[in-house]
Simulated assay, not measured.
Amino acid sequence: MTFAEHLLQLRKQRGLKQTELAKIIGIGWRAYQTYERGEREPTLSTLIALADFYGLSLDELVCRER
C-alpha cells in the first residue's frame, strides 16, 4: 500500500472529509488533497500532526517496514 492510499484509507475509516481533516491538522484542504493523490509529500510537521491524530508512529503512517 502506498502512503497516499494509506492516508485515504485512514481518513475514510474515521468518516472525515478532506476539508475536516485538513482543518484538524492545520493545513489547507487543497494541500491535503495533493497528499492523498500522491502528487506531493507532506512536510515533517504535517506528518507528525497526522501521526498524532491517528495515534500511529511515523513509520506506521508512511507504511515503512523494518
Rank of each mutant, 00 (worst) to 15 (best):
L44N: 10
R14C: 11
V62Q: 08
F53C: 01
K23Y: 04
Y32C: 08
R66V: 14
L58P: 06
H6I: 01
G28P: 01
L7A: 04
T2A: 10
L44F: 15
E60C: 02
Q33R: 13
M1T: 00
T43S: 15
K23E: 11
E20C: 03
L61D: 04
E60I: 07
F3W: 12
L50F: 00
G55V: 13
D52S: 10
R66Y: 07
E5Q: 15
S57W: 07
G55I: 09
H6Y: 12
H6R: 14
E65H: 12
K23W: 00
G26W: 03
M1S: 13
T19M: 01
Y32A: 03
H6F: 06
L21S: 01
L58M: 10
L7N: 07
A49D: 01
T43K: 14
A51R: 10
D52V: 02
Q9F: 14
T46H: 04
E39Y: 06
R66D: 12
T43G: 10
A22D: 04
L58S: 05
A51S: 15
E39K: 09
L50G: 02
G26K: 04
E41A: 10
W29G: 02
L50E: 02
E20N: 08
L21F: 03
R37E: 13
R66F: 08
L7M: 14
F3G: 09
Q18T: 15
D52W: 01
E20Q: 15
G38F: 10
E60L: 07
W29Q: 14
L10F: 06
L16W: 11
Y54L: 02
E5I: 00
S45D: 14
K12A: 09
I48F: 04
P42H: 02
L7V: 09
L50M: 13
F3D: 08
L61P: 04
T34D: 02
R66P: 13
A22C: 09
L21R: 04
D52P: 00
G38M: 11
E39C: 00
I24L: 12
Q18N: 05
S45F: 03
Y35C: 01
G55W: 06
L10R: 06
K23C: 02
S57V: 07
Y35I: 10
I24H: 03
I48N: 06
I27L: 02
R66T: 13
R37A: 12
R11D: 06
R14L: 03
E20D: 15
I48S: 08
K23G: 05
I24E: 04
F53D: 02
T46S: 10
A31I: 13
I27A: 06
Q13S: 12
L56G: 08
L16D: 01
E39V: 12
L16V: 09
R40N: 15
L21M: 13
F53T: 03
A22R: 03
L7Q: 07
E65I: 08
L7K: 06
T46E: 02
L7W: 05
Q33S: 14
L61E: 06
C63H: 11
L16Q: 10
L50C: 03
S57T: 15
